[in-house]
Amino acid sequence: MVETSYIPQTLEEALRIRKETGAKPLAGGTDLMVMHRRGTGVVPSFPWPVMIISSLEELKYIRREGDDIVIGSGTTCHAIEDDPSVPYAVRTAASLMGAESLRNLATIGGNVCNASPKADLPVPLIMMDAKVTLVSATGSRTLLLDEFITGPKETDLKDDELLLEVRIPLPEKDYSHVWYRKIGTRKANAISKLSLSAAVTLDADGFIKDFRSANGASGPKVARSTEVEKILEGKNVTEIPSVLEQFLDAYDAILSPHAMPTYRRLSTRRMLAHFLTEVASGTQNMIVT
């Protein structure tokens, strides 16, 4: 009998199984077990060998390394939302991902590697230029999360690799304003219809040193454009009203032309306008809600 599932006890064993059999990892199971379910009393059927990696304690950590917050791929959303060292937008996205019972299972690694265009965590992560580190039996590599996710449900994960950790570079200076907003049909367990994360850093004179924003569920992958962000950089908050329309039009152009464009475009414009209006209103160091 060919084994179709494995339960490795160490990362080393998992990497060996991955290399030898090509078994695909199953972490929390909240996406995969539902995707491959066959009904009551019937064992879910996967078209590939599976390894259950949820008991790999080596992948469960949140720690600070230099100027980065590093989150192990097996860390659950609940652990992420509970840890004050994790940046606000990421923590908030984790806390809104589903009901508690789901957040106790779902992992950051699963959310990233499933690469759903509607995934919640990649939105603030890509906004913050997060990187992913992939390991195999023979080595490791680190690349930008935005480059790792190549399309809807598609990543650059190689057949012998596993996601080790997500690395979030902390900004040099804390964001002056930061925002995360998710729109779904139900408070718990909703899949995002649209999500947006934005952050701005102002200097003492009110000039925008850094602006960034990213959209989820509005295209084949998270939408972000550093070109468009530059429209706001260097401007004073007092100039925001005069460049707002130009910025919103440019931002609009990076959203996918598909899938209920009017609704998503209009909501994105209104959310960004709200965020920037709050920024322009002058309150310092605030979390915009």
Partner: peptide, 30 residues
Amino acid sequence: CGEGECGACSVLMNGRLITTCMVPVGAVKG
């Protein structure tokens, strides 16, 4: 529902709330 939406299959795993329709029994080892 069988897909983690309804909570009817909730139990506690190591004291934490989970929905058992999404958990393979292999993940419960120990």
